[in-house]
Simulated scan of single mutants.
Amino acid sequence: MQRLALFDLDNTLIDRQAAFRAWAEEFVTERGLDDKALTWLIATDAHMPGPRGPFFTAVRNEFTLTQTAENLWQQYRQRMPELVSCRAEDLDALRQLRSAGWRIGIVTNGMTDNQQGKIRRTGLDVLVDAWCISDEVGIRKPDPTIFQIIAQRCGAPTQHGGWMVGDDLTLDIAGGHGAGLHTIWLQSTQTPQEFVGPRPDFTTATVTDAVQILLTHNAPPA
């Protein structure tokens, strides 16, 4: 099997939940809102995955804001890349993977400006061969086509195998499986356990652990 490793971005390579909480705290403070507003923002975000348009429409309505939902969304996309971070050990693991001759790609749903800003701000752009953002190509995970696009950009087509690493059982694990990839699930305490799709090949907690699995189970020929 070729040495191709594809990674999800939010809550895989970066801590999106921590960044969102930081954004929500700023939002509440700037508008003089209370702790109930912070709780509402975090809970609503958790229950409204996918495109952010509906979320910001709900925010505008909940707090009777004069700004349009589109304007709120644009401000969010500008700020979020400044709040995200990667674990230093995960960045070191990606360097180790590259040194071992792996092709590395990022495949993520989201808006191009927001997701690309996160990739560049955290330094991931110099540690991967390519990335693919759903807004850019008009295809969202778990559609197998988006995995095929990023694999091609990495110079390693999916028909020759590879791996997908991510935190979402549907988008990353079922999506990667549908594209013919082996999968590693980064299990979170906040990830629902009820799932009837294909099971991951491995389950672990961090990107660092996932990289060690890759290096062990897909070692180059002697």
Rank of each mutant, 00 (worst) to 15 (best):
M1K: 10
L4C: 07
F7V: 11
D8S: 01
L9N: 03
D10L: 00
D10C: 03
Q17V: 15
A19W: 02
A19G: 02
F20E: 03
R21M: 06
A22R: 05
A24G: 03
E25D: 11
V28R: 04
T29G: 12
E30V: 14
L33W: 00
D34V: 01
D34A: 03
D34L: 05
D35P: 14
T39Q: 15
T39R: 14
T39F: 14
T39I: 13
I42F: 14
A43L: 13
A46I: 10
A46M: 11
G50W: 09
R52E: 07
P54D: 01
F55Y: 05
F55G: 02
F56H: 01
F56E: 02
T57F: 09
V59S: 05
R60F: 06
R60D: 00
T64S: 12
L65P: 01
N71E: 15
W73N: 15
Q74M: 14
Q74E: 14
R77K: 13
R79K: 04
M80F: 11
P81A: 05
E82R: 08
S85I: 08
C86N: 08
R87G: 13
E89P: 02
L91T: 15
L91F: 14
Q96T: 14
L97E: 01
L97S: 02
L97P: 05
R98H: 10
R98C: 07
G101K: 07
W102A: 00
W102C: 02
R103P: 05
I104T: 01
T108E: 03
G110I: 06
D113W: 05
N114K: 04
Q115G: 00
Q115T: 04
K118L: 01
R121F: 12
D129H: 07
A130I: 05
W131H: 06
W131P: 01
C132F: 05
D135P: 12
E136Q: 10
G138C: 12
G138Y: 12
G138S: 13
R140S: 13
P142I: 02
I146V: 12
F147N: 09
Q148A: 15
I149C: 11
I150C: 10
T158M: 09
T158A: 11
Q159F: 12
M164G: 13
D168S: 00
D172Q: 04
G178T: 05
A179K: 07
G180P: 04
H182M: 13
W185A: 07
W185Q: 05
P192S: 09
V196C: 15
G197D: 07
P200G: 02
P200H: 04
F202G: 09
F202D: 10
T203P: 00
T204W: 09
V207H: 08
D209H: 07
V211K: 10
I213Y: 06
I213Q: 08
T216P: 10
N218P: 14
A219G: 13
A222N: 15
